[in-house]
Amino acid sequence: MAEDKYNLKNPAVKRILQEVKEMQSNPSDDFMSLPLEENIFDWQFAIRGPSETEFEGGIYHGRIQLPAEYPFKPPSFMLLTPNGRFETQTKICLSISNHHPEHWQPSWSVRTALVALIAFMPTNPNGALGSVEYKKEERRSLAIKSRAAAPRYGTVERQKLIDEIHECMLSKVPPVPQLSPSQDSKEHPSNREGEVQVSSQHDGATPAGEAAAEGSPNPAVGDRIVEEVQEAPLNGNPGPEVARTLNAAPSGGSSQLLQRPEMKVQKPADDRLFTWAAVGLTIAIMVLLFKKFMKSSGHGAVFMDGS
């Protein structure tokens, strides 16, 4: 690490170095994140698509920038891998957007934010800034594609780090469960964990995440995540244990969902119907607003003339 390059008296630097150390001593199967060697305020990360969702098996890269006032000001995140949930190369601010009802607080960390980011993937964006709403099939195929190669981004130095993270994540994340095994991606991870395999065997295509998202509004999800993260260290320091807790977080609720297989049968036609209805409504509202605007501006003009 380039520790000697930085003013260790600087509180932000001190804090960030501690986070790097903590991140390395408690690695997680769900994400990986490292600062650039030449600038510890600039990190690369990759997260694993939450299991039981259309993102399962996906490896999504992104960039984190920490402000000079960290941890008083929140880090900013952006994704680099096309994923169908967040726009790429666009900042997603986890603290004050729709994603999070509360303000950022210094007791959170890069780890907290990454866990939250994973948990947000299967939630309904509700038009939040920096979000997109792709169809499940598209998201699923993006998840498969995401494994093939890491995104190209930034300097050679950064690219090296991205590739390194990608390799490491490939070994941790089992590939996307497929209905047709022919499409199964070539890089089968060698060290699959038993528990993971069990969860990915359940069904080829699980709308579990979506069902969960529909049932619970965003704030609740946010709350749960933050609580879970803060509870994680309770389990003591050993890495594997913490990792398992975090592992369980995004896929919470999968057990009830499995008992309701009928949830799986979601007609895309329904989706389309709603979309058209929404478009129609939007147009109607716009027309009304326009009319009102014309009216009021007409009045305004009259007043203006009067004075």
């Binding site: 003013n7 008296k9 600087n10 932000a12 630097v13 600038n39 305020f41 600039d42 920038q65 920490l66 402000p67 000079a68 000001k73 900013s76 952006m78 726009e87 190369q89 666009t90 900042k91 601010c93 603290s95 004050i96 957007s97 800034l129 920096g130």
Partner: peptide, 21 residues
């Protein structure tokens, strides 16, 4: 009086939340 390498925030055209903040 401490010096910190300020990350270049301007390079991202797309604002929004950042603006509000």
């Amino acid at each position: 009086a401490t010096s910190v390498p300020t990350p270049e925030f301007d390079e991202w055209a797309n604002f929004g939340d950042q603006d509000i903040m």
